[in-house]
Amino acid sequence: MSFEPRILGFLCNWCSYAGADLAGVSRIQYPPNIRVIRVMCSGRVDPEFIFKALKLGIDGVIITGCHPGDCHYIEGNYEAVKKFELVQKLLSKLNMEKRIRLEWVSASEGNRFAEVITDFTNQIKELGPSPLSGKDLDMELMEKLEALEMAAESYRLRALVGRERKITEQENVYGEKYPKEKFDNLFDAAINNEYIRNRILLSLEKNPKSVKDLATQLNIDSKEILNHILVLKGRNQVAMEDIIENQPIYLNVMER
């Protein structure tokens, strides 16, 4: 039997949902793999939703919203872009970024809606089933995805995403436009750091470990791990439990 992907769609109420309806009214056919969740605005799609879906083994997630400038809520779709970019950047760490897509579909674009869905469905078919869709779960991948989700939910990344447009497109508190390039560098570093930190937290949640253990497990330079441990200690998320054979052992002390 050929692979029939499970695809989740988030459609904004005003443009895309109407566009999808129009496809129906016009009887334009597209693959039946998509299931739709209606939201009022594409900006409503919390990165958390996408990760949750992927963790459930859903093969692809598509978000559609109004074309830039046409948002019923003025600028919600621009915010959607930022959140999408965050998720995309995070997922690229697992080469899963192609499993998600953001598209603009207006209320008059029934045709386009069908095309976009067809195209995306084909894309997912080509990618094959989600590595998390089978019965035997790849627990390591799941943990990585979990770490990405935690990063996406972290205060720091949400704060940066929430402020990005304001400071890089309008003006920051000093009345200057913060250079996009500089912001991207900072943001990319933050994404990377928060991902690794959450991987550390998840790993330590299972059992306490030394920097060396973590470095081996995560295949990351031990110096970098140490720096992350220091930050996590500063956040009161990990603590040193003991020193065994010259190796301080850390444990996760977060309340979950």
Partner: peptide, 17 residues
């Protein structure tokens, strides 16, 4: 300080002898 007073190696956080 950053290491809370523990002497740790910056390379890997182990305690040096």
């Amino acid at each position: 300080g950053p290491f809370s007073g523990k002497v740790l190696r910056p390379s890997d956080g182990s305690t040096p002898s």
